[in-house]
């Protein structure tokens, strides 16, 4: 069956639906071993180690937050310096105008707040999270108790379906692997038949 998978390619995707996390991870591993890199997978909860199995790189979000915090620090420090030293210096409790020790709290809070906001915006951007009242998953159970792995398929969809069956998938369905939403580019697969076979 691995040969069938390896020859699959093209624009549509076929997803195998798994009820068992172990079989799903094994199928992901087998697909990767068969040389597939263009995979899409849905899980109802974060599956430990799936990133390595699918060959996904470590998320870049962590790299965005620290610079954002630093920018927040710099901006807030500059802001306070401008106000309390340049614009209108006021003697307060005998403290120097540029009493940086007394700026630490607002600077820290501003930096961390900016880091938090950037963190959220980054995850919204990268996961393409927007208020979409019509977004539907390929199968509603994918947010409940089912796992899915989608492979790109060209002309040999039946072979892909059979491969999924061999991996323990309980059913297969056509999906749009690009957007990961239920907007198939070809009709649902009746049983194990391929639409373009």
């Amino acid at each position: 069956m691995a040969d069938a998978v390896r020859t699959a390619g093209g624009h549509g995707y076929i997803a195998g639906l798994f009820a068992d996390e172990g079989s799903f991870v094994a199928a992901c591993r087998a697909a990767r071993a068969a040389g597939h890199t263009d995979l899409q997978a849905w899980t109802p909860w974060p599956v430990h180690g799936l990133e390595e199995v699918l060959g996904l790189e470590r998320s870049w979000i962590g790299r965005a937050v620290f610079p954002a915090i630093l920018i927040g620090f710099v901006l807030c420090t500059g802001f306070i310096y401008q106000l309390t030293v340049e614009d209108w210096p006021v003697v307060y409790g005998g403290k120097p105008f540029a009493a940086w020790q007394l700026w630490v709290v607002p600077v820290l809070e501003t930096g961390l707040l900016l880091g938090a906001v950037v963190n959220l915006l980054a995850v919204f951007h990268t996961c393409r999270l927007v208020p979409d009242p019509f977004a539907t998953l390929p199968d509603p159970r994918l947010s409940d108790d089912r796992f899915a792995l989608a492979l790109p398929v060209g002309g040999d969809a039946a072979a892909v379906c059979a491969w999924f069956a061999a991996q323990g998938a309980e059913s297969t369905l056509a999906v749009d692997g690009e957007t990961a939403l239920a907007r198939p580019r070809f009709a649902d697969l009746p049983g194990q038949e391929a639409p373009h076979a």
Partner: peptide, 12 residues
Amino acid sequence: LGWKGTASDWRH
């Protein structure tokens, strides 16, 4: 927000 729960989504 149109959460899909793909492996990539969970990673981020």
